[in-house]
Design a protein around this nucleic acid. Sequence first.
DNA 1: CTGAAAGCGCTTACAG
DNA 2: CTGAAAGCGCTTACAG
Lengths: 343, 343
Amino acid sequence: MAKSSSGSKNKGVSLAEIAQDAGVSRMTASRVLRGVDGYSDATRDKVLAVAKQLGYVPNRIAASLGSDTATSLVAIALPTLGRDLYSQILEGLESNLSSVGYQPIVGVVGYDDDTEYQWLNSALAWRPCALVVAGRTRSNAIRTLLQSVTVPVVEIWNLGRSAEKQRVSDPLRVGIDHYRAGLEMGQYLGGRYSGDIGYVGVRSGEFVLGAERLNGFTEGFGIEPQALLLNDRSSFYAGYYGAEQLLSGNPDLRVLYFLDDNMAVGGLMFCQQKGIKIPGDVAIAGFGGLDVGSVLPARLTTTNVRRLKVGKLAAENLIKRLNGEPVAVIDDVGFQLIKGETA
Amino acid sequence: MAKSSSGSKNKGVSLAEIAQDAGVSRMTASRVLRGVDGYSDATRDKVLAVAKQLGYVPNRIAASLGSDTATSLVAIALPTLGRDLYSQILEGLESNLSSVGYQPIVGVVGYDDDTEYQWLNSALAWRPCALVVAGRTRSNAIRTLLQSVTVPVVEIWNLGRSAEKQRVSDPLRVGIDHYRAGLEMGQYLGGRYSGDIGYVGVRSGEFVLGAERLNGFTEGFGIEPQALLLNDRSSFYAGYYGAEQLLSGNPDLRVLYFLDDNMAVGGLMFCQQKGIKIPGDVAIAGFGGLDVGSVLPARLTTTNVRRLKVGKLAAENLIKRLNGEPVAVIDDVGFQLIKGETA
DNA sequence: CTGAAAGCGCTTACAG
DNA sequence: CTGAAAGCGCTTACAG
């Protein structure tokens, strides 16, 4: 547990001192500092001057306890962080959240229900005004937790498939329909290629990343791909390795679909090194629309998703909900099939 | 400012209720729940049972106000987030911080002093137990702020050049000496190539990213490179574009050094497409040791830095400082010159 | 436009 | 081992 012996709290300037120096009551000083109505111009100027001179830093801990409104803290639980996906979503979230005075508490919880549950519980102790989690199927314990919480919950990235059954009290969802993204890629490739197909993805324990996309892809293509699920994180190297594994076992594979562009580029590199022609021998497709795909000698065939936009929209919708404004319970950011030169 | 009309705070179970149901005083319940000494086994079991049954979620806001110790919140101000660099550092930070009960409040503040100052000030309102910022030269206002703060400050990524003058009260630093990283690369390439050299980097307004590295590189190579500083974010495409610009203006450039691997790979792609031989015609080097470099047809010459490690070590040292334990004021994570095939 | 009182949910000294 | 009192720094109703 966190403890700090060096940490006797910074007893800085308090509201009471401001009030005293300005010759007003704490209430009046409080009103001025919060910018609510109820004071003369002279009073305002005096209080503000004193506050500035003394270097007053308001104490949100006390403010939050004193009021019965929630804090301006938003608890954000992310599955991962070190790669493009969630870091860009988080950047979008942070940007739009902080611009209106909310501050994110972030946790990296992986794909493990217990870890996420623990984290959410400890985050709740800070009485956040909202919760942001990645959309996915969860254990009963977490579902119960998320439902019993009185603050808004936003699920990002994954819209889920039961888009039609939403009620107003349900969590807000912002992201894309990954099944459809996979479906469209499957249909596109299915119309151009035939023969055996393969998929290289990643799992985290029980949890298979991008499972809905793979389902959609299978449906769209019309053939069950040979799926290789590495127990690893997505990376160029995982894609390289996965392509090697899959192709060495099944040299006839005509199409290789990857969990994301990072892995697809890794697979591409493997094929290039082995003299396998793309897309002549093997067609390759990724997902995500990462930066790298556009600079490759051959433009990567992929599905483009605006990750920053997902974060920004999630923040916007959350803010609307917090302000009691009407808001789309499901917000589909959409995607774009990029018909590149690798498939 | 943040406000929430839907946000009447979740009046959940309080300590008082636990105490009443368990038939003890609030103080005793508090002691049990915090795990400090001073109660019988029977009392403990009773309190714990009631707390669990009622679904008690402790209120850290109140706990923090009630005690005079700092919160378990760590304020982390990052320049950027959507790319590998700081997201991986943050992942390391979060991981080691959360494992001992600290929670990060994160802000993305760019390279602008005013923005960072504002953010730090609002973060301070949450009375964090520590501050984490990126190491760099700052305005007087921020320096004053960071010095006047009573909680530990950690500067990450950049060690700075005045490593010898540190005192115990100075901020902790964890990262690498970027000047040296540039110097060693410059020396390495200077020993292998001669002729005009170029550098493609990025600036954010006044702030030049990786400026110390460029200085070291110049010193090490012994020649002032033609430097192109794009007013953009680092990306594959920026590297591609930068290489194009630089090479079209100076076809004789023999060496191209890039701000980071992303940009270097972009430059590499440009050269490949133009039939420019690497390293026969142009030698290319990056920085960072990003994943992509290892899968390229030609292994990228670069400087490897363990970003996750920077974050983890920063957290570890911070925790030591918070616990009053001795700790290295400057912690050099080090780097590794990768002599690849592109230079 | 202004302020005195009470309270938010905890914890810190005390005292027993 | 246990508890009554006071207080953390604010804000919410009131009342004027």
